[in-house]
Amino acid sequence: MSWWDGSYWMRLVLDAAPVLPQPHWLPMLRQAGWALVLAALVTALMQCFDARWVRDKGRLLALASALWACIPGPWGLSYWLGLAFQTPSLMAIGLALLYLWCSVVQRRWPHSAQYLGPASSRQRSLAWQDRYAFFGIAMGWLLLFDVFAYLPWSLYAWGFHPLANSLFLLVALWPWIATGRVAALLQAPSKVLLPVLALFWVSRWPTGNLWDAVLDPWLFVGLHGYMLMRCRKREGT
C-alpha cells in the first residue's frame, strides 16, 4: 500500500464496518440520561410559573424525578422510559445539562440578555439556533421517511459510517466557517454538538449510530415546538 494510493483510502472509508458501543455502561448511561432530561423538563415546566415558591419547589421536584430515574430495575423511571423510548440522544442529554447548568447553577435563563450579552450578539446566537433547529427538523423528517422505507437509500444505516461523524463535524463548525469567530462555537448548539461528537467518537453511545446520538425522535418533536415558539415571537414583534 502506498500513502498516495487513493483507492486504498477510498476502500478504507467505504468498506469500514460499524463500531458498536460496549454494552456494559449502557444501563448507567440510560439512567443518567433520563435523569438529566427529566430534571431539565421539570425545571423548564416550573419556570413557566411566576410564583417563587413554585420555582423553589420545582427544583426539589426536578431532583426527585432525577433520583427516581436513577433507581435501577422496575422501580426506576428509566426502566419504563427505556421500554418505550430506549435512551435519549447524547444531544438531548447535553442540552438538558446545559439548561440545568444555566438555570439552576448560574440561576439565569439560557436565552436571557444577561447570558447572551448585548442585543446584537443575542440576535446572532438565536439566528444560529434557528438554522440548527431547521436542519434538525429537516433531517428528522428524512429519517422518518427512511423508517417507513420511503427513501431509495437507508439514511439511518448511513449513521454507522465514518463519513457521518466527519460531516457532522462540519455542521458543528459551520458558525466558525461562516463568521470566522471562534466564539461562535461557544454558543449553543455548537457548544453542545462538538462535545457530543467527541463523546460519540470515543464511546459510540448509545447505539453506535450517529443519528441516535445527535437527534432522537423526542428532540425532533421538541425542535418543532421551538420553531413554533420562535415564529410566534417573530409575529409578536
Partner: peptide, 11 residues
C-alpha cells in the same frame, strides 16, 4: 477524522 475513524474499524 474520517480516516482515523475508518482505520480503527474492521473492513
Amino acid at each position: 477524522l474520517c480516516l482515523a475513524d475508518a482505520s480503527r474499524r474492521a473492513p
